[in-house]
Design a protein around this nucleic acid. Structure first.
Lengths: 149, 149
DNA sequence: CGTAAAATTTGAATATTCTTCAATCAAACT
DNA sequence: AGTTTGATTGAAGAATATTCAAATTTTACG
């Protein structure tokens, strides 16, 4: 057993998928060549970033989900995207947004369990520029990535 | 011109994609039949929910992104999932979670612009059981669905 | 341990689906 | 109206996925 499963999950999480031209063609009752043309156009316009899989994250070691609100130090206010971009590099982070209101950044984080989450906060969230964080822990994931669970 | 584009976006947002067996096979240097077997296993285990496209949402009329924190009335505390499930039915809602802390639910919402968002709040978020909401507006989307933008 | 059953891996044949292309049609602009 | 650009289409060809039976590995259990 070569543990191919874990490597496939890593690949499918962000890519290695393709549109089903024929299935869409029959769904909307247009010729496949027409669908093909329109999909290629979406791609070349840059409107489509990637094709990927959505998982039942509990089954693939990413079942613990937390939203983290982050306050930056005043020195970072001129460029909140710097820290946002740093956070975005971690594969545990599903999303990062710079936001309005009492907090500067919101990040959505997926780990296996609370222990891994604790390790992640120590490793990643404790960094210069981050002065305060608040964790909102997901008790129940009802919908993710537009997919109801 | 049949405006096929919009219909394709709607389909690709939640499905109508498939894994690229051959590309993954060469990437991790294993036979295509092996990759095929493992992917089908992930699917039959229910670990994979769907294959879908991720968009540059600004280009597809979903550029305005808001996180909404929701307080429920005490009568809903016994079953926060009821309202969470109701919210999940709307295609504007990317994610819904029941959470710990000062708020019961967090939802991520995508609309074309602030006007559409305002209409959405009036139409959807103003409902029995929801007693208070706070909107955190995204100023800059750095990463979504594990994809850096 | 040892053995049987179950699960996984694999190459090669087959089946399915995508992609291309030249022709046609529609829209936009002078 | 005429010209250019963009969109649609059927059919041929190219590429990719799927199946299957055999070999191998892992797991379960006596």
């Amino acid at each position: 057993m070569k543990n191919i499963r874990q490597r496939l999950i890593a690949l499918l999480k962000t890519g290695f998928c393709a549109p089903k031209i024929g299935a869409m063609a029959s769904r909307i009752k247009e010729p496949a060549a027409t669908i093909h043309y329109n999909v290629k156009k979406l791609e070349s316009d840059g409107a489509i970033k990637t094709y990927k899989a959505v998982f039942d994250y509990k089954q693939v070691e990413m079942g613990f989900c937390t939203f983290v609100l982050i306050n930056l130090s005043p020195t970072e206010y001129s460029n909140p995207e710097k820290i946002a971009n740093e956070l975005a590099t971690f594969q545990e982070i599903e999303s990062v947004d710079v936001i309005t209101g009492d907090w500067e950044i919101i990040a959505k984080i997926r780990t296996k369990d609370i222990e891994e989450y604790y390790a992640f906060t120590k490793r990643v969230l404790s960094r210069p520029g981050v002065v305060k964080i608040r964790s909102l822990n997901s008790l129940k994931q009802v919908k993710t990535e537009f997919i109801s669970l």
